[in-house]
Amino acid sequence: MEHHEEKNDLLADAVALRERGRREEARELLVALAADRPDDAEVAYQTAWAHDVLGLEAEAVPYYERALAGAGTGLTPDDRRGALLGLGSTYRILGRYDDSVTLLTGAVEEFPEDGSLRTFLAMALYNTGRHHESVRTLLRLLAATSEDPSVREYRRAIEHYAEDLDATE
């Protein structure tokens, strides 16, 4: 039990450092913790995130991948969703567009109600040249989630055209 409490204390310390703007110190603490606990998905996820916020996307990838290994065992559903979004977005930033589409497609299937996953998938689809699918994804999301009265008024038409962007009627 002490080992678990120690991990939680160290994670809390890293979060506190990050919240005080001491991101590099938080990253260093998490790297050390991840080295000590290489199979801990939660630590790997927090370490990936610490790299991401510093613009160290390439360094974040192995931690995200470690966090998600074995279907993300050890992550809460919200952290798993966050790790999928983080890794998918990071793949895209690094120009790994096909990897991003593959990962985010699976993430959308796993978390179909999450609009942020669909948004990042649309961006990755765009980067792979799948422009129609990208716009379709965004239009479906817009139609489903917009509170704008003028969008809601045309929701059916938007949903219809999302299915066939070349349709004229």
Rank of each mutant, 00 (worst) to 15 (best):
E133K: 01
V53Y: 10
V61H: 09
E57Q: 14
A32L: 02
L75Q: 02
E2L: 06
G115C: 05
E24T: 08
T102D: 15
Y91H: 06
L125D: 07
E110M: 07
D148E: 09
V53E: 15
L165T: 15
T119D: 11
E5Q: 04
F111R: 01
A122D: 01
A32I: 06
P62A: 02
S100H: 15
V101A: 02
L165V: 11
Y161E: 02
H4T: 11
E169F: 13
S89I: 01
T145F: 02
E24A: 07
D40M: 04
E113H: 13
G21I: 00
I158F: 00
E19S: 11
M123H: 14
V135W: 12
R152F: 09
L11M: 00
T105K: 02
A67W: 09
E109W: 03
E169Y: 11
D36E: 15
D114A: 11
L54S: 02
Y126V: 10
G21C: 06
V43N: 14
E25P: 04
L75A: 07
A71R: 08
E163W: 03
A14Q: 01
L138H: 03
R92V: 03
S134V: 06
L33E: 06
E147N: 12
T145I: 03
G86V: 10
A16H: 07
A162P: 05
R136Q: 10
P62G: 05
T145H: 09
Y154R: 13
L165H: 13
A48I: 11
L84D: 09
D79G: 02
S89F: 04
L11T: 07
L94F: 08
T128N: 01
L17S: 15
D39I: 02
K7T: 15
E65A: 08
A143Q: 03
D114Y: 02
L75M: 05
D98L: 03
R140E: 14
L30M: 09
V43M: 03
I93F: 10
V15E: 01
V15C: 00
A50S: 14
A48E: 12
L117R: 13
L125N: 09
V151S: 00
E57D: 14
M1N: 09
T145N: 04
L30S: 12
